[in-house]
Design a binder for these strands. Structure first.
Length: 345
DNA sequence: AATCTTACGGCTTCACCATG
DNA sequence: CATGGTGAAGCCGTAAGATT
């Protein structure tokens, strides 16, 4: 039979004081309203040492209503290889900043059993309440859930802009601005017909990129030909598709994500074409570990680590009682690469 | 058998009190 | 009146116990 762990009341008895004093000594609250003689403080500390007393964190959070635990909830898998560890640097940033802010981290990776998709709620109960506050992220943060979290008053920060009418806090990435910069760069290399290859799934970050593409056309005085904007899966991309874009006059192609770019280079090879010799190519966001065929691709670097850090900082401020939504937009770094050539006149 | 009540877990904190 | 405390409510959910 293992000996029962000593509780606060045991320490109190041992030191000849009331449990309240033990609590106050434990939390160093000897300077405020309540005065405790230095001798008593020492006696209590000695008793705690002697009995090997450790406070019970569950009971503590029961009494205080908080536990200095931050949750991370992801709407998609973080660890499987298919995700190419895109979010890994984000998690590293979160971990580092959580440590710096003296919190603990709790990772929620719930099954899809309940709503057909991952959900914060289990049988209608917000599981994130186990933590003082949480960071939610994923390519498809569910707008309805986030709205509900907000309405319930649960403290959280979203990584990625969420389209909802609620004033939620988030860390956004300036995909529009970064894409604008890429288009500007292409235009600087004399391209005026730039095709856009996007994913069929129009999640927020993709639409932001496309917004930047369109904005650049407007601001740079380029004619936008809708036939050059294509939504396609990498698996279904055919050589014909590339041929059609080039026949239509496109001299440069931007890809929303790296699997599209890889697929594009594959079908180019089938046609005996390559970038930047036969067309220019830019990728709208660097893959975490650049795929071999994209090692020199013109792209931009997403500040994944900084996004994680910033999310924790915002959440910490929310938990410190900051009222109203906190929002940060981080910019990306342009990477010139070698897949864009200056177009001959 | 169904429904309602209470004790319990360990800790924090507010209101209050005895003594020199 | 300053010093050095004490007592008890309450945090929340569960399960055992009491009452119909």
């Amino acid at each position: 039979m293992a000996k029962r762990r000593p509780r606060q009341v045991d320490v109190a008895k041992h030191a000849g004081v009331s449990p309240a004093i033990v609590s106050l000594v434990l939390n160093g609250k000897t300077d405020d309203k309540i005065r405790i003689s230095p001798q008593t403080v020492e006696r209590v500390k000695a008793s705690m040492r002697e009995l090997g007393y450790m406070p019970n964190p569950i009971a503590r959070s029961l009494a205080t209503g908080h536990n200095r635990i931050l949750g991370v909830f992801t709407y998609e898998s973080v660890f499987p290889l298919q995700s190419e560890n895109f979010y890994f640097p984000v998690l590293v940033g979160i971990e580092d900043e959580v440590e710096a802010q003296d919190y603990d981290l709790l990772l929620f990776t719930r099954s899809r059993r309940y709503a057909g998709r991952r959900s914060v709620y289990r049988d209608g109960v917000n599981q994130l309440l186990m933590a003082d506050g949480s960071i939610v992220f994923g390519r498809d943060v569910a707008a309805d859930e986030v709205a509900r979290l907000h309405d319930e008053g649960y403290p959280f920060v979203s990584i990625g802009r969420v389209e909802t009418d609620r004033p939620i806090s988030y860390v956004a990435t300036d995909y529009a601005g970064a894409t604008f910069e890429v288009i500007e760069y292409l235009v600087g290399h004399a391209h005026r017909s730039i095709a856009y290859l996007g994913a069929p799934d129009r999640s927020v970050s993709y639409r932001d990129r496309e917004g930047g593409y369109r904005m650049a056309h407007e601001h740079l005085g380029l004619a936008l030909d809708e036939r050059r904007v294509r939504y396609v899966d990498p698996e279904t991309l055919r050589a014909d598709d590339l041929q059609a874009l080039l026949d239509g006059g496109a001299t440069a192609i931007v890809c929303e994500h790296h699997r599209l770019a890889v697929a594009l280079l594959r079908v180019a090879r089938q046609l005996g074409l390559s970038a930047p010799r036969d067309f220019s190519l830019a990728l709208l966001g660097e893959p975490p570990r650049a795929a071999d065929s994209l090692a020199n691709c013109t792209t931009f670097r997403i500040p994944l680590y900084a996004i994680g850090v910033e999310a924790v900082r915002l959440l910490a401020r929310v938990l410190d009682g900051h009222e109203g939504p906190l929002r940060s937009t981080l910019s990306c770094d342009f990477v010139s690469g070698h897949t864009v050539a200056t177009l001959a006149p």
